[in-house]
Protein backbone atom coordinates (compact mmCIF):
# COMPACT_ATOMS: atom_id res chain seq x y z
CA UNK A 1 0.00 0.00 0.00
CA UNK A 2 1.29 3.45 -0.81
CA UNK A 3 2.31 5.48 2.19
CA UNK A 4 0.16 8.53 1.44
CA UNK A 5 1.09 10.21 4.68
CA UNK A 6 4.80 10.22 4.14
CA UNK A 7 5.24 14.00 4.15
CA UNK A 8 8.09 14.25 1.70
CA UNK A 9 7.17 12.00 -1.17
CA UNK A 10 9.73 9.73 -2.78
CA UNK A 11 9.74 11.51 -6.12
CA UNK A 12 10.24 14.95 -4.56
CA UNK A 13 14.01 14.65 -4.37
CA UNK A 14 15.39 18.13 -5.10
CA UNK A 15 18.27 18.88 -2.71
CA UNK A 16 18.94 15.28 -1.71
CA UNK A 17 22.14 13.53 -2.72
CA UNK A 18 21.55 10.52 -4.93
CA UNK A 19 25.16 10.15 -5.99
CA UNK A 20 27.31 11.20 -8.94
CA UNK A 21 25.78 11.86 -12.33
CA UNK A 22 26.84 9.48 -15.08
CA UNK A 23 26.31 11.43 -18.32
CA UNK A 24 25.13 8.35 -20.18
CA UNK A 25 22.51 7.46 -22.73
CA UNK A 26 21.17 4.08 -23.80
CA UNK A 27 19.32 3.43 -27.01
CA UNK A 28 15.61 3.43 -26.23
CA UNK A 29 14.03 -0.01 -26.65
CA UNK A 30 10.91 -0.75 -28.67
CA UNK A 31 8.77 -1.64 -25.66
CA UNK A 32 9.75 1.68 -24.06
CA UNK A 33 8.68 3.56 -27.20
CA UNK A 34 5.40 1.66 -27.09
CA UNK A 35 4.72 2.68 -23.50
CA UNK A 36 5.46 6.28 -24.40
CA UNK A 37 3.16 6.00 -27.41
CA UNK A 38 0.28 4.52 -25.37
CA UNK A 39 0.53 7.44 -22.98
CA UNK A 40 0.57 10.02 -25.75
CA UNK A 41 -2.36 8.43 -27.55
CA UNK A 42 -4.41 8.42 -24.35
CA UNK A 43 -3.56 11.99 -23.34
CA UNK A 44 -3.85 13.63 -26.77
CA UNK A 45 -7.42 12.52 -27.43
CA UNK A 46 -10.16 15.10 -27.10
CA UNK A 47 -11.83 12.92 -24.46
CA UNK A 48 -8.50 12.51 -22.69
CA UNK A 49 -8.50 9.11 -21.08
CA UNK A 50 -5.39 9.73 -19.00
CA UNK A 51 -3.61 13.05 -18.49
CA UNK A 52 0.08 13.51 -17.87
CA UNK A 53 -0.82 14.72 -14.37
CA UNK A 54 -2.60 11.45 -13.68
CA UNK A 55 0.38 9.52 -15.01
CA UNK A 56 2.64 11.39 -12.61
CA UNK A 57 0.26 10.96 -9.70
CA UNK A 58 0.17 7.23 -10.39
CA UNK A 59 3.97 7.13 -10.39
CA UNK A 60 4.05 9.04 -7.12
CA UNK A 61 1.67 6.50 -5.57
CA UNK A 62 3.96 3.57 -6.30
CA UNK A 63 5.47 2.11 -3.12
CA UNK A 64 8.69 4.06 -2.39
CA UNK A 65 10.88 0.98 -2.56
CA UNK A 66 9.49 0.15 -6.01
CA UNK A 67 9.89 3.77 -7.17
CA UNK A 68 13.53 3.51 -6.16
CA UNK A 69 14.34 0.31 -7.97
CA UNK A 70 12.49 0.21 -11.30
CA UNK A 71 13.30 2.16 -14.43
CA UNK A 72 11.66 5.13 -16.08
CA UNK A 73 9.28 3.40 -18.50
CA UNK A 74 8.65 0.68 -15.93
CA UNK A 75 7.27 3.37 -13.64
CA UNK A 76 5.21 4.66 -16.54
CA UNK A 77 3.57 1.34 -17.38
CA UNK A 78 2.88 0.56 -13.72
CA UNK A 79 1.16 3.92 -13.28
CA UNK A 80 -0.63 3.79 -16.60
CA UNK A 81 -2.05 0.31 -16.08
CA UNK A 82 -3.12 1.15 -12.52
CA UNK A 83 -4.94 4.26 -13.71
CA UNK A 84 -6.63 2.44 -16.59
CA UNK A 85 -7.93 -0.10 -14.07
CA UNK A 86 -8.92 2.66 -11.62
CA UNK A 87 -10.97 4.29 -14.39
CA UNK A 88 -12.55 1.07 -15.54
CA UNK A 89 -11.00 1.20 -19.00
CA UNK A 90 -9.26 -2.10 -18.26
CA UNK A 91 -10.27 -4.83 -15.87
CA UNK A 92 -7.61 -6.03 -13.42
CA UNK A 93 -8.44 -9.69 -13.95
CA UNK A 94 -8.26 -9.47 -17.74
CA UNK A 95 -5.00 -7.54 -17.53
CA UNK A 96 -3.45 -10.10 -15.18
CA UNK A 97 -4.67 -12.92 -17.38
CA UNK A 98 -3.11 -11.33 -20.46
CA UNK A 99 0.21 -10.87 -18.68
CA UNK A 100 0.15 -14.55 -17.68
CA UNK A 101 -0.59 -15.63 -21.24
CA UNK A 102 2.38 -13.64 -22.48
CA UNK A 103 4.62 -15.08 -19.80
CA UNK A 104 3.51 -18.60 -20.64
CA UNK A 105 4.20 -18.03 -24.31
CA UNK A 106 7.88 -17.16 -23.72
Amino acid sequence: MPDYDNIRQQHDMGGLDKGPVVPSAHEIELWEKQVEAIMRLLSMRKDRIVTVDELRRGIEELPPELYDTIGYYERWIMSLSNILVEKGVLDRAELDARVQELEAAE
Binding site: L42, Y73, V89, R98
Partner: peptide, 20 residues
Amino acid sequence: QGYYQHLAAATRSLLIEKGV
Protein backbone atom coordinates in the same frame (compact mmCIF):
# COMPACT_ATOMS: atom_id res chain seq x y z
CA GLN B 1 11.13 -10.15 -21.57
CA GLY B 2 10.46 -9.34 -17.93
CA TYR B 3 7.27 -8.50 -16.06
CA TYR B 4 7.14 -4.85 -17.13
CA GLN B 5 7.55 -5.65 -20.80
CA HIS B 6 4.71 -8.16 -20.51
CA LEU B 7 2.59 -5.63 -18.67
CA ALA B 8 3.24 -3.11 -21.44
CA ALA B 9 2.36 -5.62 -24.14
CA ALA B 10 -0.78 -6.70 -22.29
CA THR B 11 -1.95 -3.11 -21.83
CA ARG B 12 -1.23 -2.29 -25.46
CA SER B 13 -3.00 -5.33 -26.88
CA LEU B 14 -6.08 -4.89 -24.70
CA LEU B 15 -6.42 -1.21 -25.61
CA ILE B 16 -6.14 -2.08 -29.30
CA GLU B 17 -8.72 -4.88 -28.97
CA LYS B 18 -11.11 -2.50 -27.23
CA GLY B 19 -10.69 -0.04 -30.08
CA VAL B 20 -9.19 2.73 -27.94
